[in-house]
Design a protein around this nucleic acid. Structure first.
Lengths: 184, 184
DNA sequence: AATTATCTATCTATCAGTAGGTAGACAGAA
DNA sequence: TTCTGTCTACCTACTGATAGATAGATAATT
């Protein structure tokens, strides 16, 4: 793996566990065995790094939804793929969604990172709303959008609560209700 | 207002807008026109300050629920009081729930703050679950708990999304669905 | 083929600024 | 006098960021 990718991996991990403002260039460098000046070589400023991590994360999520939850797949499978992305973050490494974390800290971020986080949430809402318009063509677009927003919000909040309470059942309780709410 | 209260107010504001790791003792001191050493006099460490802010916040929320949503009040009013706490944070100052922010950053916090945040979420869940057991006595306790957790999670996530998208309608869309879900 | 020049990725060393935190002086109130 | 609250002055550690050196690979020129 290239150094650039190692840096992105380490930075993503720091952001998703501790937040954007609680890690330094030195932390990232130490995590992968280089010096902080070398991190600056690949990403001149912390905002550059944050933007790159966020863009890569968004692309990965969308690609994963494309793979596991393509339009041809059955509705229940598609919903499970969507929820599974959030569950995986929690189960694999007790992490937040990258953009859930950055969204909480949004006021302390630079404009490029802010914009990248916005794009992520818009994409999540769009994916779910478009799913709902397909499975419930009789429903108003506004209703689909509201349902989509509610599901994304609940998943983000579920990650916060499950991590805080150190109890995965919090996430599962919320996920189960979202699932039936989206499939119904 | 006492200096101690001014410090708590300023710290709460910083945490709820930017997060616990993006403000300093100097920031707090400057916000209220004193020196950082004086902040240390009232709260020796940053953890002490974080714990005090969190405990005060929890007490205030519970008192407010006691006042506006006491057990004798009609269910719809009680739910509105609960949701209104979250809406107020967003509308008045575009702030997060203090514990939603700290919950996201939980891994970077000291144990006393962690514990205080946990107590808040447990109290929120308990309040809503006890409300639901009263309005739906026929329902299992586990269902009430799951419904309560889902509502709190969705409200926390709604704050993140509404702030990130700079669009209050995101919050209102989610709040409306939670409201009907809780009253039904 | 040999030489020269350029590029890439890293390093060491350093900067000015800020972090959380402390010691001790001082003024006013009890 | 003693206690309370605030101050000045300072500490060590760390922050994001930069400058300049260096080694190795690659490309261009002779």
């Amino acid at each position: 793996m290239s150094t650039k990718d190692k840096i992105l991996d380490a930075a993503e991990n720091f952001i998703r566990t501790q937040g954007f403002n609680s890690f330094s260039f030195r932390d990232v460098a130490a995590a992968i065995g280089i010096k902080s000046a070398s991190v600056h070589y690949h990403f001149p400023t912390k905002d550059d790094l944050g933007e790159a991590v966020t863009d890569r994360y968004s692309a990965n999520i969308l690609a994963s939804l494309e793979a596991e939850g393509a339009e041809s797949t059955a509705p229940a499978i598609r919903v499970d793929a969507f929820i599974g992305i959030y569950r995986g973050a929690l189960k694999d490494a007790r992490q937040m969604c990258l953009c859930g974390m950055l969204g909480a800290e949004i006021e302390s971020l630079g404009d490029p990172v802010k914009a990248a986080v916005r794009r992520f949430f818009q994409a999540q809402e769009n994916w779910l709303a478009s799913f709902l318009r397909k499975t419930h063509p009789e429903q108003d677009d506004e209703v689909a959008r509201a349902r989509a927003r509610s599901a994304v919000a609940a998943l983000q909040g579920a990650l916060i609560m499950a991590r805080t309470m150190d109890d995965h059942s919090v996430f599962e309780d919320v996920a189960a209700r979202i699932r039936t709410g989206l499939i119904r």
